[in-house]
Amino acid sequence: MRRFGPLAVALASFALIAALGGTAPNWVVFLTTMAFAKGIVALGLVLLMRGGLVSFGQGLFYCAGAYAAGLAMRWADASDALLLVALGGAVALLLGLAIAPLLAGYRSIFFATLTLALSMIAYGILNKTYSLGGSDGINLRAPSFLFYRAATPDAFGYALFVFTGLVTVAAAVLCRLHFDSMRGLLSLAARDNEIRVEYLGASVRRVSLGNFVAAAGLGGMGGALAALALGHIDPDFAFWTSSGEFVFLAILAGHQSVVAVFLASILLELVRSFSSQYFPNSWQMALGIFLLLVILFLPEGLGSLLRRRNPPPEAASLPVESLK
């Protein structure tokens, strides 16, 4: 029964998402689609953070996935959403594989700064590469979904929402399974104590590289989905503010819960949406206050609310009797 648990949860979650999307207004459908797409990118960042690394350059993979989907549509006339998202993930994953050896020896702020530098290099190159649209970027047409092509914008919005929900649920379930696996736990161990991990016979380097590449793949898929939802891509996908948003999301979610990542993403989209509507000239300040409150009152993120609590400490010294 236990082995069917994740599948049952996945199917139920997907059914719920599809049903809610069918009754929600268009703006909610679009906002949630974007939240899911960005949540997938942030999920990759959470995967990386569980191993003790924070990337300030996740926008690079977000951008790579988006451009891979956009260019495949433009140059190869590819129009199927599944193919485009898979391609976005694959291109970002390969890019991650190529970069990973360069980053393998770095930790903490050095790792974060290097990833940021790489994403800003990509931003600069895309800005000046006119065959890729330069700073204006490129527009994308509406994709099809296997054999289904939406006839109206509303139908397309809902179809993309359902498709994004499907990818989100699949990514969430796979990540949950991974987090509970021995390799997933090893990430937490490496974050806590790299020396001990090595003395136990495991490779911290291999764990870090694996997480980095997987996070890159998720980043690419999220980027491709966001590009399809927006119908437009530009170099800002790789700009540091995009990467900063994913870091914010990961902090807001914490590393304990997969569901919390997507809740955090929806919450952030809502805060941004409403604050830009009601405080059009100072919505960034509203966002900053929100972040401040999260750090003060939920330092381990939304996921910490769902965490299993340890029993309170009782023994103050080694009870000699219990050892005799």
Binding site: D180, S181, L186, L200, G201
Partner: peptide, 15 residues
Amino acid sequence: LGIARSERLSSWRDA
């Protein structure tokens, strides 16, 4: 124990 007993750690199976 998990590290000691596995040549290759599983990424999907419950620890």
